[in-house]
Structure formats: C-alpha cells, structure tokens
Amino acid sequence: MAPAASASTVGVAPPSLRCGACVLTATVACRMHARGKFPARRLLHGQAQVRNRVATTWSLKAGLWDSLRSGFLKGNNSTETVEPPPTPFEEEEPLPEELVLLERTLADGSTEQIIFSSAGDVDVYDLQALCDKVGWPRRPLTKIAASLRNSYLVATLHSIIRSPQAEGEESKQLIGMARATSDHAFNATIWDVLVDPSYQGQGLGKALMEKVIRTLLQRDISNITLFADNKVVDFYKNLGFEADPQGIKGMFWYPRF
C-alpha cells in the first residue's frame, strides 16, 4: 500500500482557481478543484430553495393574517368563526334616589319637608349662596359648575315649605350638599360637605353623610376617603372614618407662587 502523502506533497491550487466555498491555508489545496467538481450550481440551487421556503413562509403568514382579518380561522377541513372581542360591559347608571328625611309643622302653620336627593339637582347660584352662609371663600361659578358636572355623585338637602294660605305654592331652598368623585369601580372621595348654619345641630349633616356612604356602598364602592378640617374631625370619626388608618400618609402638592 502506498504511503499516505504528507501535507508538503499535496499541491496547492493557484489563487485564480480557488472556489469561494473553500477556506484554504498555504498547505491545503481546494480538493473540489482537484477532483474537477464545482459547487456553484449546487449553491445556487440551495439558495433558490431557501428563497422558496422564505416566500412560502411569508405567504402562509399573509394568509393567516388575511383569515384573521376576515374573521375566520381555516383548519384542515373545517372553518371556525372567530368571535370579535367582547365590548366593555356598560353598567347602567343607578336611578337617583329621593326621600323625605324630616317633615314638621312650623309656627305659622306652614309645613316643611327636608328632602334628600342624589339626582344632583343643584343651581350654582344657590350653591354659592350656601357657601357664603358657611363662610367658604368664593369660587368662580364656571368652576363650581364644572366640579358638579364631573362628580360621580352629588347629594343635596332641600327645604320645601308649603303655606296653607297659598295652596299649590311652595318655596324650595338648598340647605345642604355633598359630592363625591370616583373611579366608578373601587374608590371614592367625598368633597364639599356643607349644611346651612340655621339647620345645623339637627342631625341633618349626619343623615346626609350616611346617605352618601350608603349610596356608594350600594354601587359596590367601599374604599371611601375624605379631607376634613381640624374642627370637624370628630364629626367624621363618629361616622366611622379613621384619621390616618394603618399609618398611611397622604401627600399634597401645592403650587408655589
């Protein structure tokens, strides 16, 4: 048997005859050229197959996308309808509540009813007059109207007086209000709780707040917060509110002018 040729006896193809598929060193010849075989056609054929597979893949993807857009997924021998995503459930707005909290006869023989309502029936001028009575600073009427319009709940107390001498006639006066903002799901914050000073001390403020809280609970909102001045903290504590529960610290940002 002839001895194996050493690396020094193997001929090296000239650079002009080296094919691009081989990586040659100074002592290794392009065996493909030595055998008279050229891989160019095979390489081109392989590249064409790759291009065909890529084109087929994109065609399949495009076909799937078109089927999804048309609302169908096509299997082997079946067609399955793809239902559109469900639209968000639109919860019906709860009906406003109105009830008589108190009914009494006045000294002049006229009758007065104190009516609670969650219908948000508030005249901005009446509200401004009520704010004046409790000593709140005046706010622009346009902002008052916007705050009422953007509130989740606006509850009011009205005094309706009917005189026996003027049948069918009545006077209506706003004597209390509270409003709440909410995310309509979990949380609500109560704002602007006020009662006419001439009607304070009769339990109307407590009744107003209890009705507001009950209305929010009926709407499945149980995380209820509010902000209170120091002089009315005890009033809200008696209603079940806690100051700084579980060490939670509220933070405020105020403009610095």
Rank of each mutant, 00 (worst) to 15 (best):
residue 233 V to K: 10
residue 170 E to N: 02
residue 218 Q to V: 07
residue 135 G to Y: 06
residue 195 V to T: 11
residue 227 F to N: 14
residue 237 K to F: 06
residue 114 I to Q: 00
residue 240 G to R: 08
residue 123 D to Y: 01
residue 211 K to C: 10
residue 122 V to K: 02
residue 139 R to D: 04
residue 234 D to C: 05
residue 211 K to G: 05
residue 217 L to R: 10
residue 225 T to P: 01
residue 234 D to P: 06
residue 232 V to E: 05
residue 196 D to T: 12
residue 134 V to H: 02
residue 146 A to C: 10
residue 120 G to W: 00
residue 233 V to P: 07
residue 172 K to S: 13
residue 137 P to F: 02
residue 166 A to D: 06
residue 145 A to Y: 09
residue 188 A to K: 08
residue 113 Q to K: 13
residue 125 Y to V: 11
residue 214 R to S: 14
residue 125 Y to G: 02
residue 137 P to M: 02
residue 239 L to R: 08
residue 219 R to L: 04
residue 114 I to A: 00
residue 143 K to S: 07
residue 131 C to L: 14
residue 225 T to H: 10
residue 206 K to H: 08
residue 140 P to S: 07
residue 196 D to F: 11
residue 232 V to K: 04
residue 163 S to D: 15
residue 186 F to Q: 08
residue 118 S to F: 03
residue 129 A to V: 04
residue 187 N to R: 14
residue 122 V to P: 00
residue 183 D to K: 08
residue 149 R to N: 12
residue 140 P to N: 14
residue 183 D to S: 08
residue 230 N to R: 07
residue 221 I to A: 01
residue 121 D to A: 09
residue 187 N to V: 10
residue 120 G to Q: 00
residue 211 K to S: 14
residue 115 I to C: 01
residue 242 E to K: 12
residue 232 V to H: 05
residue 146 A to E: 13
residue 162 R to Q: 12
residue 143 K to I: 08
residue 225 T to I: 06
residue 176 G to N: 08
residue 117 S to K: 05
residue 175 I to F: 00
residue 133 K to R: 11
residue 208 L to S: 12
residue 135 G to Q: 02
residue 115 I to Q: 03
residue 115 I to V: 15
residue 245 P to W: 11
residue 128 Q to N: 07
residue 186 F to N: 05
residue 117 S to H: 02
residue 237 K to N: 13
residue 143 K to H: 13
residue 138 R to Q: 11
residue 131 C to P: 00
residue 163 S to W: 04
residue 176 G to R: 06
